[in-house]
């Protein structure tokens, strides 16, 4: 299944995103595990709030990083996060 760009996204139950100063990174927490996110993965996932769609997230990122063509990379990553079960449709 793939992500619809017009549907709001949220974290799956049991997944929590958190900034960890000691790791200088966002981490995604789930039962008895964690994923340390790269800077760009963190920038994408921190914009997931239960209301924003993939389309919104791309526009907001492009506003923060003017001139960058992020569409495909962001979609690919959101797809990956969706397949991993980290995020789901709100």
């Amino acid at each position: 299944m793939s992500i619809s760009t017009n549907q709001a996204l949220r974290f799956a139950r049991q997944y929590k995103l958190q900034w960890e100063p000691t790791q200088n990174a966002y981490v995604l927490l789930y039962p008895e595990g964690l994923v340390k996110l790269t800077e760009s993965a963190g920038e994408i996932l921190k914009r997931i709030d239960g209301n924003a769609t993939a389309h919104d997230i791309i526009s907001r990122l492009e506003a923060s990083y003017p001139g960058a063509d992020l569409q495909q990379d962001v979609l690919d990553f959101l797809e990956h996060a969706y397949d991993k079960g980290w995020i789901t449709n709100a």
């Binding site: 958190q18 960890e20 000691t22 790791q23 981490v27 927490l29 008895e32 595990g33 964690l34």
Partner: peptide
Amino acid sequence: ELGAVQLG
């Protein structure tokens, strides 16, 4: 404070 995140 040292960075532990999981608690059982």
